[in-house]
Amino acid sequence: MALGIGIPICVQCGTASNPCRCKVVGPTVGFLAFAVAAVVEWPVGALVYCFRHGKGRQIMAHPATKVYPSVINAIPI
């Protein structure tokens, strides 16, 4: 039995940014951008957290607070 690994599909309904009121491309690309940023920034943030707690938390929160929202808002579909 083979298990297929696919690309995650994210759907956001109830948005007013397009006539269909659903977004698929933006949230999916946003999730992929979030994952790439998190792989890079979380280890760096953890290292910085050892010396400067506040700055380490900001670095680790960056993918969720800046990357994901900016990508999903930039793509209206």
Rank of each mutant, 00 (worst) to 15 (best):
L3P: 02
V67G: 02
H53L: 09
Y68E: 04
T15Q: 01
I72D: 01
P19H: 02
A16Q: 06
I72A: 00
S70G: 03
I7P: 07
A61E: 01
C50V: 05
A33P: 05
V44Q: 05
V25L: 15
C10S: 14
N73A: 05
E41W: 10
Q58H: 06
N18E: 07
C13F: 12
H53G: 08
H62P: 04
S17C: 09
P43R: 11
K66D: 10
I75Q: 03
L47K: 09
V36R: 09
V25S: 12
G30K: 04
G30Y: 09
P76E: 09
G26C: 07
R52A: 04
A37E: 11
Y68V: 03
T15G: 08
I77R: 10
M1I: 11
V36P: 11
P43G: 15
V36T: 14
L47A: 15
Y68P: 03
T28A: 02
C20S: 14
G30T: 04
Y49Q: 03
C50K: 13
R21D: 05
P27Q: 00
G45K: 04
A38N: 12
P76S: 12
I72W: 01
I59W: 00
F51M: 03
C10N: 13
R52N: 13
V11A: 10
L3H: 13
G54H: 04
V71D: 02
V29N: 00
P43M: 06
A2E: 14
Y68D: 02
I72M: 07
A33S: 11
V67Y: 02
K66M: 12
A16C: 04
L32I: 14
V36F: 12
A35F: 15
V36M: 13
L3G: 03
V44A: 13
P69R: 08
P76H: 08
C10K: 15
P19K: 02
N18Q: 10
I5M: 14
P63W: 03
I5L: 15
G30L: 08
V11S: 13
P76T: 09
P8V: 07
P63N: 05
K23C: 07
G54V: 01
C13H: 11
